[in-house]
Design a protein around this nucleic acid. Structure first.
Lengths: 343, 343
DNA sequence: CTCCTGAATTGAAAGGTTTCAACGGACAGT
DNA sequence: ACTGTCCGTTGAAACCTTTCAATTCAGGAG
């Protein structure tokens, strides 16, 4: 290969391509960004040169010029919860469709980790940030928006009034779950979930109570078993409490605020020799893949997870393009009935 | 705030900071990168200016200058499999410790998606790529390495001779699972998994057979139930086949090549009214969180997932620093016995 | 033949950071 | 007083892409 030599360590640049193809920098750039402006013969020559040199665009330089990068970011609250990985999948699909890269980070519920991630993402000049925040009211996010990076809150609405949000109607979800149990004839039901400070728990509980009241049942027969977190262990522990209640005061149905907790309850029931749904019917929330995969497939409230993600991505891209009114998109959940209630 | 004005859209640059602090560009850069070289008084003045202006380093420009970015990338094979999300967690931890950003991508088993991701990552000039490839022999990866970006293969060894790899001893894992069943007195056992083209399946099967032979049992009594993939559905379907065998030829123990398949088998058993482990003992593989969360907690072969990830990250960072010999790290798996075999 | 038009192409400038050779000043030693 | 050293600081150059005003060229109209 004669003539033109470029820095091996760094690879070919537009300049090298231009020299090889015998055109100017500007033309190479046009081939990349506005090919219709370039005469087909020229374009072909340039493309040939690119292939020959193995040219790969330098996104960093591009970003520097443009002022912002072609990357989005999603800061997950809990990567171990399949709900969030499915949301991430929806975001990735949308990002790919827009030719954007995606940083996925996991705060794992730690405000400190979250902050470190947000710091990095700002340094990367990402085009927009999608986040399920540890604490929406911390002020960090507001500051990021003020600096010009669009932020969309995913799956949270409390304290997020000033942001775009994408969420699912949790009150309706709670209602659907409890109405399902009522329809099946249950007159004593447990609500399992927490912590009660979480907006979503409040909404699902409120929806449950409303459905209960609408059916003319006594509030005393909708038992709140509050947990500290939404984990398998919390579900097991709540199950222990539930099964320990005196026989005649024992609920015949339980609505768990997420599937992971429901799996814990299911395990505890199995351990105690109770049959599901004959002795106790169980409804979960989220409809993660593992809900359908449980020994007794779990009835659950499905949230449109991927759509949640892709919509959030669309919003953040919109916002990065033009000033626009903040949108608060709310999706409708759906009950998926399976063996854990139907028998 | 008098005087100095900077482009609002873009935010403050080192230049703005330098002007505000009354020093030169170089000094600001020194404060950022070699603070020990700067007189404390000066440093403080610069840091003050940074805070005042809300200065955020522009990683793109930094990358442009340095030739590569301060970001790693992990291309997952299947984001819905918790095994890989745990590996990702390990990588993220290591990346954070090194102050590196991390792109997480999901090929979802599609070579096309994988290629699109790799394209983007090269444009980003990432410092290194960690990947569980759809096809290690495709040549794409070799080309990326040739262009100077280090690549480490995660959880695959076949056809990856020329790369750094990080994996777990699958033959040993298979041996542990089957030895456990033998120890419990099982003399007829099923191996469930596939596709048989997958190196890991081959290794786990080979390890199983070796353990079986070592115990002096007849090869005919280790039954291979091959599946097309490692999914819940495949596990259910294999369960159907297993339970359909004539009673006296029916295995009393099953070793599934991953936990997800084992959950499918467990579900099928539950559906058919078989008790686990009394009628059939089940061993899974991976020890994902949901294995312990199953109605009957699953005995499983644990792989050091997070360590797998963090080691891979360490290797790729090493490789990006200096030429080094390719390392092939192999971890040792461990059996975790639970109720699905112990009763 | 000249002028005009529009299309294709050019080249310089800008964007923010890092590096490095060079510089200035203080201070010690002679 | 002079030289040499060392520390702290400086400013220009380089990294690569994109943009845009300017330029060239071909071809048609007058």
């Amino acid at each position: 290969m004669p003539g033109r030599q470029f820095n091996l360590r760094r690879g070919a640049s537009v300049k090298d391509v231009a020299a090889t193809a015998g055109v100017s920098l500007g033309t190479v750039s046009n081939v990349l960004n506005r090919p219709e402006r370039v005469r087909p013969a020229t374009r072909e020559r340039v493309e040939q040169a690119m292939a020959e040199l193995g040219f790969v665009r330098n996104e960093g330089a591009r970003q520097l010029r443009a002022g912002r990068s072609r990357a989005l970011a999603y800061v997950m609250l809990d990567a171990r919860n399949p709900f969030f990985t499915d949301v991430a999948q929806g975001i990735e699909d949308a990002a790919m469709a827009e030719q954007l890269s995606l940083f996925i980070c996991n705060s794992a519920g730690s405000a400190e980790r979250e902050l470190a991630h947000l710091e990095h993402l700002q340094e990367q000049r990402v085009q927009g940030i999608l986040i399920t925040p540890v604490d929406p009211e911390s002020g960090t996010l507001a500051e990021i928006v003020k600096r010009g990076t669009p932020v969309v809150i995913v799956d949270r609405t409390r304290g997020a009034g000033q942001f775009c949000t994408v969420s699912v109607d949790d009150a309706l979800g709670g209602r659907l779950a409890v109405e399902h149990l009522i329809d099946l004839g249950h007159t004593r039901v447990a609500f399992i979930g927490g912590p009660p400070t979480l907006g979503q728990i409040q909404d699902r509980w409120a929806g449950s109570r409303a459905a209960w009241a609408d059916a003319g049942l006594s509030p005393d027969d909708l038992v709140l078993l509050s947990t500290d977190e939404l984990t398998v262990a919390a579900g097991r522990e709540a199950g222990e409490r539930l099964l320990g209640l005196p026989r005649r005061r024992q609920p015949t149905g339980a609505f768990c605020a997420n599937d992971i907790t429901a799996l814990g309850l299911l395990q505890q029931c199995s351990r105690a020799g109770r049959r599901v749904p004959e002795d106790i019917a169980i409804v979960g929330y989220d409809d993660i893949d593992f809900a359908a995969a449980a020994a007794v497939p779990l009835t659950s409230v499905r949230q449109p997870r991927q759509e949640l993600g892709s919509t959030a991505a669309r919003l953040v891209v919109d916002e990065s393009m033009e000033r626009h009114l903040h949108e608060q998109v709310v999706f409708v959940p759906e009950l998926v009935a399976r063996a854990s209630t139907l028998g």
